[in-house]
């Protein structure tokens, strides 16, 4: 296959459910502030579930960025890998968890489960309806982005912090407008 992605960084969550959008907010911040090396793709997957299969099954390694129910106060950083991933997507991710479970099960069923799946996230305080995150979780987003950057570096794909924002093409202009509209 020619269109393989070495590392897919996929934000998950619902941006109109407050802290559930933490992972999406982190992805947009990452893309705004860093240049990603060749082979790395960072995308806002929302709650699309199975529709994300074409992205996941062409990736060698996947970093899912999400809100995760876990011990610890809101904003606590969480990392899940290996055998812990499957139970986590069934039990610990936020409301869209079933879609994520279907996504990973689907990749497995067609024999294209990525070589490595890592979940990075923060503990939500609220997943109530609303735009924007609670203060504790919003404050944890820069740290979450740092974790993604470190993880990419450890995989051999270090992102480079951008000095100033670059000229965007038309597609990015729309994406930027939508992201700003959604408070990301």
């Amino acid at each position: 296959m020619t269109d393989r992605t070495a590392v897919l960084v996929l934000g998950l969550g619902n941006v109109v459910c407050t802290d559930d959008g933490a992972g999406i907010a982190a992805i947009h911040k990452l893309v705004r502030e860093y240049d990603l090396p060749e082979g790395v793709e960072a995308l806002d997957g929302g709650t699309l579930g199975l529709s994300l299969l074409p992205l996941v099954d062409r990736a060698d390694q996947v970093i899912l960025v999400d809100a995760i129910r876990a011990a610890g106060p809101p904003g606590t950083q969480v990392r899940i890998e290996g055998d812990e991933v499957a139970p986590a997507v069934y039990e610990r991710l936020s409301p869209h968890q079933i879609g994520v479970a279907d996504l990973l099960a689907g990749a497995s069923l067609i024999d294209r489960y990525p070589d490595r799946v890592i979940i990075l996230g923060v503990v939500p305080e609220s997943v109530d309806l609303g735009l924007g995150r609670t203060p504790a979780v919003e404050a944890s987003i820069p740290g979450l982005v740092e974790r993604v950057v470190e993880e990419l570096a450890a995989l051999g794909y270090p992102p480079v912090r951008r000095v100033r924002s670059e000229q965007h093409d038309e597609g990015n202009r729309i994406t930027d407008h939508v992201a700003r509209t959604l408070g990301l």
């Binding site: 806002d44 699309l48 994300l52 299969l53 074409p54 729309i174």
Partner: peptide
């Protein structure tokens, strides 16, 4: 069907670029 649907929905990718949410 799992394989087929991932191929077919590329129609949306052609219309909307890489972004998983069609933004056009």
């Amino acid at each position: 069907a799992l394989e087929w649907q991932r191929e077919f929905i590329k129609i949306h990718a052609i219309l909307g670029g890489k972004n998983p949410h069609l933004q056009s």
